[in-house]
Design a protein around this nucleic acid. Sequence first.
RNA 1: GCCGAAAUAGCUCAGUCGGUAGAGCACUUCACUCGUAAUGAAGGGGUCGAGGGUUCGAGUCCCUUUUUCGGCUCCA
Length: 590
Amino acid sequence: MKTENFSECYRHSMAHILAKAVVEIFGKENVQLAIGPQISEGFYYDFLLPRTVTPDDFEMIESKMREILKRKEDFRYVEVSREQALEEFKGQQFKEELIEELPEGETISIYYTGDDFKDLCRGPHVSNSAELLSCAFKIKSVSAAYWKGDEHNAVLQRIYVFAFETKEELKAHLKFLQEAKERDHKILGPQLDLFFMDPTAPGMPYWLPKGWKLFNTLLDFWREEHEKRGYQEISSPLINHNSLWITSGHWDHYRDGMFTIPVDENNTYGVKPMNCPNSIVVYKRTNRSYRELPLRLSDCDVLHRKEKSGELNGLLRVQMFRQDDSHNFITEDQIYDEVNAILDIADLFYGIFGLTYRPELSTRPEDFMGDINLWNKAEENLRDILNKRYGEDGYDVNEGDGAFYGPKIDIMMKDALNRQWQMGTIQLDFQLPRNFDITYADKDGTEKVPVIIHRVIYGSIERFIGILIENFKGAFPFWISPVQVGIVPIREEHSEYAKEVMEALQKKRIRCEADFSENHMNKKIKAFRNYKIPYVLVLGNEEAEHKTVSINIRGGKQLKNVPLEQFVKVCSKMNEERTLQLVESEEQMK
RNA sequence: GCCGAAAUAGCUCAGUCGGUAGAGCACUUCACUCGUAAUGAAGGGGUCGAGGGUUCGAGUCCCUUUUUCGGCUCCA
């Protein structure tokens, strides 16, 4: 008989089985149990153990778990007092700590699995471990984890386990992971000649011609849309004397994240990790009037941020990157309209790639600075905007998670492995304007302090490209494809017509490459296909005679003898309209 | 930073018990002039991530180090 809410609790019960297995293997007195929650693909359990667990141990632990399951022991629920609980878990330092921290009046419960294993647990659980026999599990990995996620605390060993109700589900999940590998931008990027990394510059991508074309195509789009909206692009120094960073507060709060350059005994420069201070230097250059606001100073200069070793991840976490940044200087009354307008841009940009995102609002933290009334008003504005745009369930709220200088809205996206990344962000800043003492002259002639909005839409272009690669598996929409059309003359005698085709395409700024080598046409087609080029044209006698092209469409489809003129038109249209889908049908081509 | 795994030709990888490094693709040359995902033949290409140690001898064993990957966010 299966427990009623089986699917909600089997992973959690399984976590107890893992803990029991580990205790039996290492001996009760050698194991300190921490916590073992269920997670999206299974569960984990944190332990303090006498030695490190390695992948060689997985099989042994798994079979011990199976052995325990076969004992068909009951999960027995017992409520206890705090004193009893402390007595029961005497010597288990983490459990003791947890018990001490439980709020007054809360029911404290223990689950027994058999008579010889117990765990502090709120449950629920299956009633007998036999129920778990039909489940599928597999130890995924082991990693270090800190007690309560704090690096100052004890280092624990976390054993991750995949767990599903059926073998089929586990199999499907392993298949998903296999497919995610095929989307991995770290593999596809270098394979498609977009970028690579060199050990002398960890986390600092080298952009190859194809990747840089993609990069710049994204920036062209960004510039076009932002110019329309009154943004003005600037560029500023990459390194500044530390006096600037002292004023901005970065020297005190962010120095560990900065690359610094000592110039002589008395002077140190810092490489910019953010653009804001220099944008403010630009703002400060002249007296500003309320008539100029919102003043939107955008830039996409190179930024450097030092990351802890082990934190880097392909293009998704780098040490050198560019943001499609802007600092919008506004009045307090302009918060609503400006944030709303920025989200309009975000919807446009994400929509054009068919990407969905989830906004996240972070509100006032305990150590906030500035005027609480301004905070309240701003947060009210942001909630109102988010409610109207995405509905109350359409975004998440992280109470108290905002920066000390202002609330923010983050745009979150997932990579191929479903890991969450922050992409765009809209951060209100009430503090930096005060640090730099910037003002504007208001209508009545008084000097007022502007609010700054730090905002990015793509986020870091590097990270955005990483997500794009994984999302499209490297098969980009036509308009951002580094090479849009590959041209294959069948024999040397077709080179002349191939050149004609190439010129017709280039005239319309369609990015194409022709292969005039003596190789067999199959070889040429294959080479282009490996780059996931949208269209590969095959040109021979037929095509030259009738001024047509035969098209190999990415994905496998073929169209024969499409009039050249028509093909150029279709390509131009996709570039102009930034079409997401590739035109594949004969009707649209003819 | 912490735990685990990994690094061999441009790429993907093999290399057994420690005996002096190999395949496929790619590249070069020659032949083939070809109608839709691998034409044939020949050839070049390596400080086995780096440094140190053990050994008669190290890609292989030990230590250090660099880089990369998975995790360190899911809360009894």
